[in-house]
């Protein structure tokens, strides 16, 4: 299973699959930030790049029920459809804003296990499948 995940992550045909979230971590106070910051937002000290695992649980959420103003919003090719978004509390402790890729908006619950991936746009989170947990 681990081998399959690594192959997925390096597959050049799938530019949006999990490549890890490029965050940063302060060596002084251990605050993790996403996206990466040059300086720690808490103490102002230097922050080192850190790749975040991406696994965590949903901390809070909402649903965008109407099309945001455009621009800046760019609706997908099929037009706007309501989507869920939230903050996922990663195992590193940081809560990352992400669009939630769920099949049914009614299934969204605080505490649900999610895996966050970074691609071309904002981070996206989808329900963690049992095989991924602990990887």
């Amino acid at each position: 299973m681990d081998g399959a995940l690594i192959r997925m992550a390096t597959d050049p045909r799938s530019p949006t699959v999990a490549v890890g979230l490029q965050g940063s971590c302060c060596s002084g106070c251990a605050v993790t930030a996403y996206p990466a910051e040059d300086a720690c937002p808490r103490c102002g000290g230097p922050a080192e790049p850190a790749v975040l695992q991406g696994t965590g649980r949903l901390w809070t959420w909402t649903v965008q029920r109407y099309a945001p103003k455009s621009p800046p919003y760019q609706a997908p090719p099929g037009g706007f459809v309501p989507f869920a978004l939230g903050y996922v509390e990663l195992v590193e402790g940081v809560r990352v804003a992400a669009v939630l890729e769920v099949d049914d908006l009614d299934d969204v619950r605080i505490g649900m296990p999610l895996t966050v991936t970074a691609g071309h746009g904002v981070p996206r989170a989808r329900p963690t499948t049992p095989g991924e947990e602990g990887s």
Binding site: Q64, P71, Y73, F83, A97, V99, G121, V122
Partner: peptide, 8 residues
């Protein structure tokens, strides 16, 4: 991307 993806 935070604007184009609808998070603003």
């Amino acid at each position: 991307e935070y604007g184009s993806d609808g998070l603003m």
